[in-house]
Every structure is written in structure tokens, then in C-alpha cells.
Nucleic acid binder design. Structure first.
Lengths: 375, 375
DNA sequence: CTGTTAGCGCATTCAC
DNA sequence: GTGAATGCGCTAACAG
């Protein structure tokens, strides 16, 4: 299968020079306007047909090296760029992947976007980034925008938005990749996250530190991922025979504000926890922030553990112990899933499942429980 | 001037139903594949010409309401979306704006991206987001990607990357908007940031708190914006007759790590500062983080002031006093600049200049200087 | 006010 | 191995 490879002369310099304007670079330019170059213009100047230009540019191997060189010379001289729209129109391939996140302002996502972009660039893909901002209307808009721009695939990293809205995408047979969605059906891949592993590590770490009242601040429980984290927490407690005090799991919303509220509630409890695990780092940061307000020193009086390992985590005071879910790896997997699907020859019966592990990373926000539970 | 208005039936519901498949929604779909709808198919079914369909869809006022309704009915029934590529090809308008940032992982940018997207969606524009990651190669790639995708305008929010590389954009007469770039020339708008205002407020705030040794941690001084902030700081000191100790201005790099290093240096100084202003919040966060390591309580022993008012700032411990530069407003201005330029009929002799103010926002990281300077 | 027609810039048949 | 011709899906002239 042939691909557009963009327009990168072999190791040649990047040329922005424009036809006949080479001598104007650096000067204030006020001259004649350019008739935007097209493949025909190149053909004329290289004295070949447009077909040959097209072939040369796309590195079709059967074209005479002589001619190819001639074409490339002109292309570089003129600073010609193929028109992506036209290309897409005729080839049916836009070389755009959609990336839907819940909100780019959540520090978990920028790293993903960055990694996704890095990989996309390498593969000559462009990204159409949209955010749902937890708003069904916006989610609809996102889908619509993806459809209108004819993306070749969509990575949905919202960790559990109403999938009903994605029917439109399904119907059009656009490859999709989700996180944490149930059995992958045709054209839909899935990245399954092993929450259990990291959470178990954290629970055992805390237990080893003699903590007996471990609280958990959940995310919005309608999110599959948030539910999974909470379940993993409870399961981990059970595994080591620790009793679960229902009061100690309070519902948060994956925001700092939620963390603040959660701490306020936990602090009022008769059996106040000595350690708090959070469903994400934002929550943990909120908890730490509020602990400061209450004058509760971390980690001496209270241990806290986050989840995600947002970059900011290591710069908290104290640096946050958290469970890492590699954003880079997640982006890599998502892109790979899409690319694999796009390049697949035969339709494939069902989507692929990818796995992503989580791991505890120890920093400074956890310590021995303040005192024996029964003084 | 007419615009594409997308495909939004007046207040009608968003329909993802697909021809003949209405009854399959919610079921696992394994039926026949769809021949992707085109304008001709719509025309045929609505018993009108493709031209009429086109007009109806684009809400050309002169079409017979009867026909228009018929067209819309079919469009909705079939879940038809116009092909943006084709539209762009013929109209010459891609309805895409480029947005170049230095790195999306810098917490300053996500808010901007979010706001920019919000506005773009409202105006039926799409965003091509690229990051330079402070790498000239990537900067080149960005420009190239913009050019290839034929964006209608580009907002360059890198706060001072080598503008030489943008010549390619200039030549092609793509509207541009910069931040803090010198006199705006044709097709290039500029957002001028009033650093002085916020910085003066901060300096005077600190002076009022009896601080006499005020340090400043700069950004990379090759960045115009970083230089401007430093200059504003020095000017503000001068204004109130405070002497500037050159040792007290140390060069940082707008990262947390830079802030950490800066504090380490400042702490060794014979006349240790009692207050530190930083060129951005990331730096301030690094400073606070390192102060914690040194056991220096903030704000009791050391006041710190940031710049940018990243959202995270208010969740630091203690909440960071900082100088706000509204990201929302910046995004709004950038978009407006581009849109104005695109919609302009006559070429306009020179670009417009937009202004953005900065303001001190008081939180908890500043306090009275620890003790009189001469005990 | 509506339909017919001619491209937009390119990749790709098909002859040569 | 190359070139001439066709059409991707749509909008904009132009004619009716």
C-alpha cells in the first residue's frame, strides 16, 4: 500500500523560498502576489506531465530518477506544497486522526496530546483535537466535527462519556479506540488499563506503613475508569484482609475542588483516616491543599496517594506519591491502534485490545501512620 | 460575504441516523456498508439539483423555503455531512486556523487552547494545533504543516521564537497574529501585553510589605516576553527609588527546575532576598518547592510572586500570589485578530495591534518582610 | 429562483 | 516508464 510521504526531499534542507522571490528574503515584501503554485505549474517548468510530478512527489519507485530529480529541483525552487485538500479528495485519505479528550485543561491530557502529536508528525498525520468539557452537546459537536473533516480514525480518551453518541462514528466505519470499554467489536479497539496493579501496590505500601484507616476519594462514579479504580481499591483492601469502612470512601469528582471538599468531610469523621488515596492527582492536590488549611502536616499526620502521575505531582510540597499511568504510553497505544486499523487490508472481525499497566511511584507524601490505632 | 455555516438545522435535533438504518440504532450493526452520501444523492432524493442542495445547505436566502425544507429533510434522514475537503478545494477556504504554542505541557497553554477552541467552534473553524517544543526543527515542521493544510491564519503564541522561520507564512500572505512582536506590518497583527502594569503592582505590593531585598527570577532572556518582564521589574523598582542589586536578578528558564535552581542560588547570597518575583508561575512553583526543601516557610520567611496566574497557582500551598495575564482573553484576542483579517475586504496597509493588561492577584504567598533590614 | 456546467488540485486509470 | 484523460465532492458562474 502506498502512502503519501509528504514532501521531504531526502535530507535536503527545508525550503521556504518562493518562486522568483529568493532575493527578497529578509526584506519587507511588497511585490506582486503569488499565483498559488499547483502541480501543473511544476509540470510545465520541469517539462514533464502532471502525472509524473505526482509520481515523483509520492516517491513512486518506477519513475525515472532523472525526471524525479528534475521535478524535485523545481519543487524546491518554487517552495511548492501539495494541496492536502485536493489530495484528500481524490485519495479518500485525509491523514487526520481525531483526538477527543474531556478537557485539555486537566493536567492529565496535555502530555497525551503532546505525545500523540509527536507520533502523528512522524507518520505524517494531523490531529483534530476536540474537548467535550463534560458536556453532551460538546460531545455531539466533537463527533460532528470529526465526521465533517473526514478523520480516518478517532481516539476517545474521555474515560467514559456516553458512547451512544458515538454510533455515528460506528456507522461510518471509522476506526475507533477507547479506553476501558468493554469487549472490542469490529473497528473498535480498546486500551485496557490495569488499575489493580498500581492500586494494590499503593494499598500494600500504606498497610506496610501501619495505616489502618485508609480512605479513598473516588471520581465521578458514572465514569467507568473511576468506578474501576474504586473497585480495585476495595478489592486490594480485601486481599490483605483489611476491613473496609464505607464512610472512608467518599465520592469526589476528579477536580481539586472535589479533593478539598473530600478532605473537609473526612476530617470530621469519628475515625479519621491516617491515609487518603485519591482517584486522580488533581483530587490529591486538592486534598493536600486543604490539609494545609487545616494545619495537618503531610506526611506526618496524613499520608496521601494520587493517581495518574501528572507532571506537576513531583513539584508539590511535599512531592506526591502517586500511581503512574504513563501518558506517553497511552498516547502511543492509541495512535498505534488507529494506525493498525487504518492500514489493515481485510476488515478484521473484531478490534484489538491493548494493555496498559499502572505502577506506584514513591515520593514524599506518605509516611508511617502517626500513632498506633489503639493507644 | 457568505460563510459556510455548517449543517445545523434550525434548532433541530442532531441526527446521526443513517439512511435506512434508523431501526438499527442501539443494535449491533452488521448490515451492508454505506456508499458514502454525496450531494448528488441528496439532490436525487430531494428531487432537486445539486446546486439547490448546496444552496440550501449553505443557507443561501434566495432558495424557496419549500425546497429547502425538502432538502433538509433528506439531509437529516440520511445523516449527510458535506465533505469539507471538497468544499475547501473549490472555495479556497479551509476554515482552519493554525495555533502554534511552544509546548502544550506548559500549564499556561491548555487554557488558551481550550478558549481558542471554544471560540473556533462557535465560528465553525477548526484548529490545527502544533507545538514547537523549543526546537527549531519542530518550528519548521509546524510552519510546513500549516502551509500544507492551507490554514487561513496562524496564531503564534510562542512568546518569541525565531520569526525568520515564519517568512514562509508571510510570503504566502497568511494572516498572522503574534504576541509581543514589534510594529505590526501588513497581515500581521500583534497582541501587546502590558507587563508593566501588573509588575508595578507587585513591586509596590512588596515594597509596602517592607521588603527591601526583592529578587527576580527571569525567563530565557532571548524571549522577548521574558526580557520585557525583567525590564518592567527593574523599571518598577526605579520608579519607587529602590536600588537594584544586580545579584538579585538571576536567569531562569521558565521551568520549575529553573525555579529550583534559582532559589538555591539566591539562598546562598550574602544579602538574601526576602521576596522573590518570578517571570512565570512555573518558576515560582519551583521556587516554592525548593524553599520547602530548605525549610524556609512561605510567606513568613520568604514572599514569592508568580506571573501568568496558571490555574494551578491557587492550589499551591500556600496559594500563590501572582500576576494575571488572562489566558481566555489572550485566546479571544488572537482569534479575533485572525478572523478580522480573514474577513477583511481590502488588504489593509498594516496589521492591527491589540492590548492585553496584566494585574496582580493577591493570595497567600506574600507577607510582611521577616524583620527590619537593619536590626 | 433553479438547473446545467465547469472547474478547484491532485492521483490514477488507461493507452502508448 | 510516461502522458492524456477522468473524476473525487463540492461551489460558483451562467443560462434559463
Amino acid at each position: 500500500m502506498r502512502q503519501h510521504r509528504g514532501l521531504h526531499p531526502q535530507n535536503g534542507p527545508f525550503v521556504i523560498g518562493v518562486a522568483g522571490m529568493e532575493y527578497n528574503i529578509g526584506q519587507t515584501f511588497t511585490g506582486p502576489r503569488f499565483t498559488s503554485m499547483d502541480i501543473r505549474e511544476i509540470a510545465k517548468r520541469a517539462k514533464v506531465s502532471t502525472a509524473t510530478v505526482s509520481r515523483a512527489i509520492n516517491r513512486v519507485p518506477t519513475v525515472d530518477p532523472q525526471l524525479a530529480k528534475r521535478v524535485w529541483r523545481v519543487v524546491e525552487e518554487l517552495g511548492y506544497y501539495p494541496n492536502t485538500q485536493a489530495r484528500a479528495l481524490v485519495s479518500g485519505k485525509t491523514r487526520i486522526f481525531g483526538l477527543i479528550v474531556s478537557e485539555i485543561t486537566n493536567p492529565f491530557f496535555p502530555e497525551i496530546v503532546q505525545s500523540f502529536e509527536d507520533i502523528a508528525v512522524q507518520h505524517n498525520y494531523e490531529i483534530l483535537l476536540t474537548s467535550t468539557v463534560h458536556d453532551p452537546k460538546r460531545m455531539e459537536m466533537s463527533v460532528r466535527r470529526m465526521l465533517e473533516r473526514r478523520v480516518e480514525g478517532v481516539a476517545i480518551l474521555t474515560f467514559g462519556m456516553e458512547e451512544a453518541l458515538l454510533e455515528g462514528l460506528r456507522f461510518r466505519k471509522v476506526p475507533l479506540v477507547f479506553v476501558d470499554v468493554a469487549p472490542p467489536v469490529a473497528r473498535i479497539s480498546n486500551i485496557k488499563i490495569n488499575y489493580g496493579r498500581g492500586i494494590r501496590q499503593a494499598v500494600q505500601h500504606l498497610a506496610a506503613l501501619r495505616h489502618e484507616q485508609i480512605a479513598f476519594v473516588t471520581g465521578p462514579l458514572n465514569l467507568r475508569s473511576a468506578k474501576a479504580r474504586k473497585d480495585a481499591f476495595e478489592e486490594s483492601l480485601r486481599e490483605i484482609g483489611m476491613r473496609l469502612d464505607p464512610e472512608l470512601v467518599v465520592e469526589g469528582d476528579h477536580t481539586m475542588e472535589g479533593g478539598i471538599r473530600a478532605l473537609a468531610r473526612l476530617v470530621e469523621l469519628p475515625n479519621r483516616p491516617t491515609a487518603i488515596m485519591c482517584s486522580n492527582d488533581l483530587t490529591a492536590i486538592g486534598v493536600m491543599r486543604e490539609a494545609y488549611e487545616y494545619g495537618i502536616p503531610i506526611p506526618q499526620q496524613l499520608s496521601v496517594v494520587g493517581f495518574d502521575d501528572v507532571r506537576m505531582a513531583q513539584f508539590m510540597t511535599p512531592p506526591l506519591t502517586t500511581i503512574q499511568m504513563s501518558q506517553t504510553e497511552l498516547a502511543r497505544l492509541a495512535f498505534k491502534a488507529l494506525l493498525t486499523e487504518v492500514e489493515r487490508e481485510s476488515p478484521a472481525e473484531h478490534g484489538t485490545e491493548y494493555l496498559l499497566d499502572t505502577d506506584l511511584v514513591l515520593r514524599k507524601s506518605t509516611a508511617l501512620a502517626p500513632r498506633p490505632s489503639k493507644p
